[in-house]
């Protein structure tokens, strides 16, 4: 859909020109396919994840921005965090039921960075083992239970 591509172009421009601190779009990934981005994240200084490097994958459907993007951690370093499963899935309400088309790649990255920054203890979600074994590949198909607003 043309309007979706146009918006993604605008977002890419903004992310390249004025990226949030510790966030960088992998330009090469976007040039291959416009609807799949890789974003490099760096843990903020003074937090449990300081100097750690992470990768996020964004997949945009044809109904973006009306439908939320599919966002997961990727690669060898998946942050150990109570809302991040070992397969990279993230339990974050703005990625499903609290999504709004006014949100963007930039605001999603900021939310994830702040989710990591506010963490006080590095641990996996309590149901990690069973979730990773039974979940769908697409985290948007999970019926997330947002039980903890503090982190």
């Amino acid at each position: 859909m043309a309007s979706m591509e146009k918006r993604l172009q605008k977002e890419l421009q903004a992310m390249t020109k004025d990226p949030p601190p510790g966030v960088q779009v992998d330009q090469e990934s976007c040039s291959r396919v416009m609807n799949e981005w890789i974003v490099d994240l760096e843990g903020a200084t003074g937090t449990l994840y300081e100097a750690e490097k992470f990768q996020l994958q964004f997949k945009f459907g044809s109904k973006y921005p009306f439908d939320s993007p599919q966002v997961t951690f990727l690669g060898p370093n998946i942050p150990i965090h109570p809302h991040v499963y070992s397969n990279g899935h993230i339990c974050l309400s703005i990625l499903t039921e609290d999504w709004s088309p006014a949100l963007s790649v930039q605001s999603v990255c900021l939310s994830i960075v702040s989710m990591l920054s506010s963490c006080t203890e590095k641990k996996r979600p309590p149901d990690n083992a069973i979730y990773v074994k039974t979940c769908s590949k697409n985290p948007k198909k999970t019926r997330w239970w947002y039980h903890d607003d503090t982190v």
Binding site: K63, F66, D67, S68, E97, W99
Partner: peptide, 8 residues
């Protein structure tokens, strides 16, 4: 139709 977001 989309009775709620992400549902078609």
């Amino acid at each position: 139709y989309h009775p709620s977001p992400n549902v078609s």
